[in-house]
Write a protein that binds this DNA or RNA. Sequence first.
DNA 1: AGTTGGAAACCGAACGTTCGTTTGAGTAGC
DNA 2: GCTACTCAAACGAACGTTCGGTTTCCAACT
Lengths: 185, 185
Amino acid sequence: MTPRTNARILTDTIADIFVREGFDGTSLNYLANQTGLGKASLYHHFPGGKREMAVAVYDRVSATFTREVLARLAGRGDLELRLTRMAQALDRFYDGGNRACLIDVFSIGGAREGFAEKLSEAVSYWVSSIARTLCEAGVEKATAQMRAEDVVISIEGALVVARATGNTEPFRRIIEAMPARLLGG
Amino acid sequence: MTPRTNARILTDTIADIFVREGFDGTSLNYLANQTGLGKASLYHHFPGGKREMAVAVYDRVSATFTREVLARLAGRGDLELRLTRMAQALDRFYDGGNRACLIDVFSIGGAREGFAEKLSEAVSYWVSSIARTLCEAGVEKATAQMRAEDVVISIEGALVVARATGNTEPFRRIIEAMPARLLGG
DNA sequence: AGTTGGAAACCGAACGTTCGTTTGAGTAGC
DNA sequence: GCTACTCAAACGAACGTTCGGTTTCCAACT
């Protein structure tokens, strides 16, 4: 019943590496070392090899994002509360700015092939989820779309800056200002 | 006198590839194909191999950025005009959102070693160049720093979104709104 | 309770390929 | 003839992948 290696934990470990090293920068030797498994064992769990691992990582991260972050938008409570909840969830999801975004990482180099469409949809889904929530609260459609785009852009940018400088303060500032920006502060 | 291969053009060609494929995703075979040179010829121009090529690319891109973009801040004319000039220069530099930023690309994977410090300084320099200009025009120091950070973050984020979705419209919107945002619109 | 069979999980070793790099021998231009 | 430049070919190392065989586990059957 209980496998020797938990598939979720294994995928999470691999995800950490892909996020840090990128698709092309991640080698199976390194994955084997970090997971404690032999390369052949990794192929047992992911017969499709490196690309299947990347797909599994993407699917898992994507599902986690939908469940942990976007779900806050549809929760109960007034709009401001839900937006604040989403901001907190984002802070957790990106580890306070220390964890890169797969949308960024997988849009560079060898991962683009096979992920281009998924990444595009991921951004659109994220943006429109926020925009729809704002619309339902009475914000005009075009305005909502623009604010949602701006916020998503800010987060992606703050993650890039955090990774490049090692300073997560701008990210935290963006996160904190997020609800007010979406409400039209 | 005139070398068979112009060093600047060669570096620009290599830069395009690094920017698209990332450091780890760029192979010397591909560089040789795209430049029309043999791998050994590339080693004649860059004896330090791939890493020296990356350093040359970074130095050239960085110098171009300082000359073409940041220099607009110190030009003549009132503040708003200079900020608009910088925005236009940014649009050109990033090819309307179609060209990735090296700060993003080189902060992932194998390029981090050896570039971490340079990337951090590049972001700081960019931010403080904008902030200083605002200060000289009378904006309070902390406010200027924050606005500058926000604008840099927006551009990096817009480039990520553009790359992931293939849609450069948000980037152009960010560019256009930039002067007003810095002026405190 | 003890044995057994087969699937799941795992591994070391090797596969062919591609990597970044080096060699050595050229050719073009001053 | 010297420097700058180019190339094809080969280097060892590392790549992603595959192979054959071992260990672990659990359900089913004595």
